[in-house]
């Protein structure tokens, strides 16, 4: 055929391959730099917060003091308590709802336009900016339902926010269970409810848990929607304790209490012009980032183990 063969031009071909492979090496280097840049960012971010917040991070007062006008005295106590209580509400509202929705979509929902609408909604909600949830909560929970800017409002708002995360993770976990397991249960006379409750949910519990952890980690760090509903930044009291030593032991007054949470406290310190408050902000940031990294890390590791361990065959 036409041109001279590769063999006759072997030296030219080799030179050409060498040139082409040089680009491989250059790109390999550039790619590695980009990856390192990403990884280093995470490291720098964390180290920066720890270094800046160092004086506060290891002082016991920081965790037992209320906010104060003096940076040296200001502490995290009300934010720690607030975050814990809000997370409790978020957990209680989002997990049953999200898991229930996922079970419905995977096990019960017929393939029709109605289900399609629900699916589109879940996908869409996952991409709605978090501050929009804040506006929703402001209009719905704070004013229409008159919950005020309370722990209940904040917990429900964050619950709605992480609902898609829980739904998606649960569905993925449920989908991994083969039909054969369900058929085996049906074959011995189980009802659909029993198949779902005793088999599907049980076997996918690990996957559901990873989704719940990732969702909760997101809720802990979320700031914008909680600001929007009017969280206070200066709380020098603690809400009524949910449990007490006298009957009836449990009360729900704390739900309507005003509150602050960790990221709000950090934001408020960060917004002060005085840089002495920035130390407090850094320490709060280090704690938030540590908690979320830990939770996400555990969830990712769990998911990896589940994928590796369970082979339905």
């Amino acid at each position: 055929m036409g041109t001279a063969s590769t063999l006759e031009n072997i030296d030219a071909v080799r030179a050409m391959i060498k040139r082409a492979k040089l680009k491989d090496h250059i790109f390999g280097l550039v790619g590695l730099v980009c990856i390192m840049l990403i990884l280093l960012t995470l490291l720098i971010l964390f180290v920066d917060l720890v270094v800046d917040g160092y004086p506060k991070l290891f002082s016991a007062d920081f965790y037992s003091n209320f906010p104060s006008r003096r940076a040296a005295k200001a502490g995290l106590l009300s934010a720690l308590v607030g975050s814990s209580l809000v997370m409790l509400v978020t957990f209680v509202s989002a997990v049953p709802m999200g898991v229930g929705a996922a079970i419905y979509l995977e096990e019960y929902a017929p393939k029709n336009w109605f289900t399609e609408i629900i699916e589109v909604n879940v996908t869409n909600l996952a991409a709605v900016p978090s501050i929009i949830y804040g506006l929703l909560a402001l209009g719905l929970f704070v004013y229409t339902l008159d919950f005020g800017n309370s722990i209940l409002t904040a917990g429900l708002t964050l619950g709605l926010l992480i609902l898609p995360v829980v739904i998606v993770a649960t569905r993925e976990a449920i989908r991994a269970i083969p039909i054969a397991i369900r058929e085996a249960a049906y074959a011995v006379g189980a009802t659909k409810g029993q198949v779902v409750g005793q088999h599907v949910v049980r076997y996918s519990a690990g996957g559901i848990l990873t989704g719940v952890i990732i969702g909760m980690a997101r809720a802990i760090g979320e700031t914008a929607p909680v600001i929007t509903i009017g969280a206070l930044t200066f709380i020098a009291f603690l809400p009524e304790s949910p449990v007490s030593s006298t009957p009836p032991f449990i009360n729900f007054e704390w739900l309507t209490s005003g509150f602050t949470v960790l990221p709000i406290q950090m934001f408020s310190w960060l917004s002060r012009p005085s840089s002495s408050f920035h130390v407090n902000a850094a320490a709060a940031g280090a704690i938030i980032i540590l908690v979320t990294l830990l939770m996400n890390g555990i969830a990712i590791k769990m998911r990896y183990n589940i994928r590796k361990k369970i082979k339905w065959q």
Binding site: L39, G221, T223, L270
Partner: peptide, 28 residues
Amino acid sequence: KTRETVKPILELLAGVPTIAFGYFALLL
């Protein structure tokens, strides 16, 4: 191996609260 190491870290980075990035932007 590199891929299996980097991808979870990407996920971790995606989970960092935005408020921490705000600090990063303003003060670093």
